[in-house]
C-alpha cells in the first residue's frame, strides 16, 4: 500500500489518516430490483488484480468519504475523488451513491473487543 494518499480537500497526507471500507464498484440496485441483482450487489465481487476503486474515509482529516483508485498488485494510488462527486459522475448511476457502511477500523475494534478472530 502506498504511504501517501492525496485528499482532494486536504492535500497529500500519510495513509494512516485514512480508513478503508472496501470496493466502490458495486452500485446499490433500485428498490424492487430482481433478487439476483441484490445478491450480486451484496455478495459477488470482481476482486480485481490491478486498478480498483475503493471507498476510503479521510478519518484523521476532513472526514469526507473518498473514492481512491488504487492498484491491488503494485499498491500505487492513481486517483482520488470525493465520493459525492464520484457518484454524480457515474454514468447511469442511481443518483447519490449508497451511504458507505461504518468504517472498517471501528468495526474491527468492536471485533477485537469481543475477542474473536484468530488465524
Amino acid at each position: 500500500m502506498a504511504s501517501l494518499i492525496t485528499c482532494p480537500h486536504c492535500g497529500t497526507r500519510p495513509k494512516e489518516e485514512f480508513t478503508i471500507r472496501g470496493d466502490a464498484s458495486p452500485v446499490r440496485p433500485q428498490l424492487g430490483a430482481a433478487f439476483a441483482a441484490w445478491d450480486a450487489y451484496v455478495h459477488l465481487r470482481d476482486n480485481v488484480r490491478g486498478p480498483m476503486k475503493e471507498h476510503w474515509q479521510h478519518s484523521g482529516g476532513c472526514r469526507r468519504w473518498l473514492v481512491v483508485e488504487r492498484d491491488t498488485f503494485s499498491h500505487a494510488v492513481h486517483a482520488v475523488t470525493d465520493a459525492a462527486e464520484f457518484a454524480r459522475g457515474q454514468a447511469g448511476g442511481p443518483g447519490p451513491a449508497a451511504k458507505p457502511a461504518r468504517p472498517a477500523r471501528a468495526a474491527k475494534a468492536a471485533t477485537a473487543a469481543k475477542g474473536r478472530g484468530q488465524a
Binding site: 500500500m1 478503508i20 472496501g22 470496493d23 476482486n47 480485481v48 488484480r49 480498483m52 475503493e54 488504487r70 491491488t72 498488485f73 503494485s74 499498491h75 472498517a104 477500523r105 474491527k108 471485533t111 477485537a112 478472530g117 484468530q118 488465524a119
Partner: peptide, 25 residues
C-alpha cells in the same frame, strides 16, 4: 487481533489482523 507461538527453532511466530484492503502483492 494478535496471537503468538514459538517455533522449534526458537523464533516467536506471531501475527495480527488483515491489512484490510484488497491486495495481490
Amino acid at each position: 487481533l494478535f496471537y503468538m507461538s514459538q517455533s522449534d527453532k526458537g523464533g516467536l511466530v506471531f501475527g495480527g489482523s488483515l491489512d484490510m484492503y484488497n491486495s495481490y502483492a
